[in-house]
Structures are given as structure tokens and as C-alpha cells.
Amino acid sequence: MNEEKVSCKDVMSHICESLSEEMDSPKCVAIKDHLENCEGCKSYFTSVEMTIDLYKKCTETFPDDVHKKLMAFLELNDEK
């Protein structure tokens, strides 16, 4: 068992990188344990993931005329 005690707040404000040394630190091990057993934090992370997914989907289309203007600005419009 782990000696380190973490609260939900600790879990929310700590990032465990996938770098091996950090993942294995007592703090991150304790956070993983907490996450596995805490519905609140699990749902927090799910919601963060959903936020990120939503944001990823918000890509702007790159209109043709914007591209044309770019090439003209760079004086590259004759190349191609």
C-alpha cells in the first residue's frame, strides 16, 4: 500500500507525465491509486478529455481564397 495521501484537489492539479521517473514517483503512484478508486476524479478526467475532444473538433476550414491571398502576399502565386 502507499503511504502518500492525496486529495481530489491534488489529483486535479497534478500532472503525471508518461516519463518513467515521474510516473513512478510516490506522488504519481498515489494519484493513480486514488484515480482508480474515486468516481469524482474519474469523472473529472473524463470531462477534461471531452473538453479536449470538443476543442480538437473545432478546426477552422482553410478557404481557397485565403490560400490564394497567402501565396500572393508571399509573391509565390506564379509558382505551381
Binding site: T59, E60, F62, V66, L70, M71, L76, E79, K80
Partner: peptide, 22 residues
């Protein structure tokens, strides 16, 4: 080589534009 340059700009236009918009 301006053709190569144009090609690079074309390849990264969308990426840079959507990042700048974000």
C-alpha cells in the same frame, strides 16, 4: 527554388492557419 518553397507553404497552410485561429 521557389516551387519548393511554394510547396512547403501549401503543405503547412492549413496547419498554421487553424493553429493561429485557435
Amino acid at each position: 527554388d521557389r516551387k519548393a518553397l511554394a510547396e512547403l507553404v501549401k503543405n503547412y497552410g492549413q496547419t498554421v492557419y487553424s493553429f493561429a485561429f485557435k
